[in-house]
């Protein structure tokens, strides 16, 4: 945690791109509400370093998806600050568009276009790089098509390029959504429970895929999980959200817990979570 504060204090004096290799996501006392009455997130403070796999764990309705929507600017905080690469995320803000193209967001519902083919779904991730006229006539440059095919091979869908998205299995759909995010050449990947409904083998396959992509593209990943076990296995950091508050954040290195901050959580509750 100390490392993060250092990097964010001196950013105004140094080259931004150099600093952006340190902290990518910063949240400061963030409160969020859908109806401006009840807060679904309260006092969220966190920062996520570049290249890290950051897991968010918590019960249903605790506010995990909302946290991701704050990070990509689909939602604005009622109070507090959210910064992605020192910019305030807001999908309605034109100034934020270049950065939106660099954030791969996989919603809980995946957001695939069911009547489009697998490859067209993936190419959607490349649209910000393609002119309006060309994209209107679906004239994708050869290199983008090659890239889409390469990424689809990477996620193990080489034989399903032309399959319509609605004809895919749950695991295959998740791979398409990951491929769509990867073709963005993202700096930040926000993935909302993309392995929760899968069997253990497929879930691990997909988590390994993300881990590989992280290494290859120096990608920062924020992943929401239902399963604490999976989070501990793959993440460098795990934040536990309960009823809209971050009650625990731990650092993981291999099978060791290296850093640990308990808010208002009892020892017993932590153990219960670990046994999940």
């Amino acid at each position: 945690m100390t490392l993060l504060t250092v990097s964010s204090t001196n950013h105004s004096f140094t080259n931004i791109s150099k600093i952006s290799t340190k902290t990518l996501v910063q949240m400061n006392d963030v409160w969020a509400s859908y109806d401006s009455k009840n807060y679904v997130l309260r006092e969220i403070t966190l920062s996520i370093d570049n290249g890290v796999n950051y897991a968010i764990v918590g019960q249903s309705g605790s506010g995990k998806s909302t946290l991701l929507k704050l990070m990509n600017g689909m939602m604005k905080p009622s109070k507090g600050q959210v910064k992605i690469n020192y910019q305030t995320p807001d999908t309605h803000d034109k100034k934020f568009k270049p950065l939106m193209a660099k954030i791969g967001y996989i919603p809980q519902s995946l957001g695939l276009i069911k009547n489009l083919t697998v490859i067209d779904n993936v190419l959607i991730g490349a649209l910000p790089r393609i002119g309006k006229l060309k994209s209107f006539f679906k004239m994708f440059p050869e290199n983008e098509i090659k890239e889409a095919e390469k990424i689809l091979k990477l996620v193990g869908l080489e034989d399903k390029f032309e399959r319509k998205a609605y004809m895919l299995s749950g695991g295959e759909k998740r791979r398409v959504a990951i491929a769509r995010a990867l073709i963005q050449k993202p700096e930040l990947l926000l993935a909302d429970e993309i392995v929760s409904e899968l069997d253990h083998v497929t879930a691990r396959e997909i988590m390994n895929l993300v881990a590989d992509a992280q290494r290859t593209f120096n990608l920062t990943a924020v992943m929401v999980h239902h399963n604490m076990q999976l989070a501990l296995e793959y993440a460098n950091r795990v934040a536990v959200i309960k009823e809209g508050q971050k009650i625990l954040e731990i650092g993981v290195e291999g099978d060791r817990i290296v850093d640990f901050q308990t808010g208002n959580m009892t020892q017993k509750e932590i153990i219960e979570l670990y046994n999940q």
Partner: peptide, 25 residues
Amino acid sequence: ADPVDAVNAIGVSKSQLIRYVVMPE
């Protein structure tokens, strides 16, 4: 709304959103 939001969050233009999400859907 889910695919519309998801694709919009990629930072595509309005015409691309119409062409690749609204029309096919």
